[in-house]
């Protein structure tokens, strides 16, 4: 690890100001950034910790919208009893990761195998930053790439509460990230299906399945559908065809469990 400066502001405004300096980098729970720095693969001049900002640590639900602060840890979401999102959060990493890692950090990093992007995209959630709101469909721009501008901070994420939802994760055996993860969410105006882990383009919506499930919310509705393996990830743990196949299996299981 190289030397760096460390600041821990207590307000969003202070954090934004601190991030304006050259080579400054926001630090959430550090579950990706710190190991990367230890391997000398990242060398920010200044780390701006977001863990001291109280307004980013709140969870609020009015029954229609669940708002989770950007600095809320996975463990806190897991313990909150918010249905599929809590179950998802309870299966991220291990206890150490869940007690440090935050939803804002996960979404800003946008690892193609992370769990939260599937929940956010399937829920049509809104990302609230320090200077705007971003719809989920506009937020994810590919592996490790998002609509966030330099220095922009995720203050909270607003999830419309679904009628039914479920997340099915098939773990990559070594890392236990999602080899494929499918989040299905049913709303009065239709069903959304978001897939993580599978695609070289990062999290995506399986629109054919959404249409079929919006017409009939049952696993049988997926009969005859298949996902093209083109563009799926190929690695030690699975071929594109295997991942495409798993998407369908997990979507059906999510519908059955929702």
């Amino acid at each position: 690890m190289y030397n760096f400066e460390f600041v821990k502001p207590s307000t969003v405004a202070e954090a934004v100001a601190a991030l304006a300096s050259e080579d400054a980098q926001a630090l959430g729970g550090g579950q990706t950034l710190i190991p990367t720095m230890k391997q000398r693969l990242a060398s920010p001049a200044k780390l701006v910790s977001l863990t001291g900002i109280e307004e980013m640590k709140e969870i609020d639900s009015d029954g229609k919208v669940l708002t989770i602060g950007g600095g809320v840890t996975h463990a806190e979401v897991a313990a909150g009893g918010y249905g599929a999102i809590s179950e998802l959060a309870g299966n991220i990493g291990d206890p150490a990761v869940r007690n440090r890692g935050t939803i804002g950090g996960s979404l800003a990093n946008n690892d193609p195998s992370a769990d939260y992007p599937a929940a956010v995209l399937a829920s049509n959630a809104t990302i609230v930053t320090n200077n705007r709101t971003i719809a989920a469909d506009d937020y994810f721009e590919g592996m490790f790439s998002t609509a966030l501008m330099d220095g922009e901070i995720i203050i909270s994420v607003q999830f419309p509460v679904p009628e039914a939802a479920n997340y099915q994760k098939f773990e990559q055996p070594a890392s236990r990230f999602a080899l494929v993860g499918v989040f299905v969410a049913k709303y009065p105006d239709g069903v959304r299906v978001a897939v993580t882990g599978a695609s070289e383009g990062g999290v995506f919506r399986w629109t054919a399945a959404e249409e079929a499930l919006s017409a009939s919310f049952s696993p049988d509705a997926l009969d005859g559908l298949s996902l093209d393996a083109e563009g799926m990830i190929e690695d030690l743990h699975g071929s594109p065809a295997y991942r495409a196949h798993l998407v369908k299996v997990l979507t059906a299981r999510a519908v059955a469990a929702a």
Binding site: S175, D235, L236
Partner: peptide, 9 residues
Amino acid sequence: LSGSYMDYT
């Protein structure tokens, strides 16, 4: 290819 616990199970 399996040089860390991310890929070595």
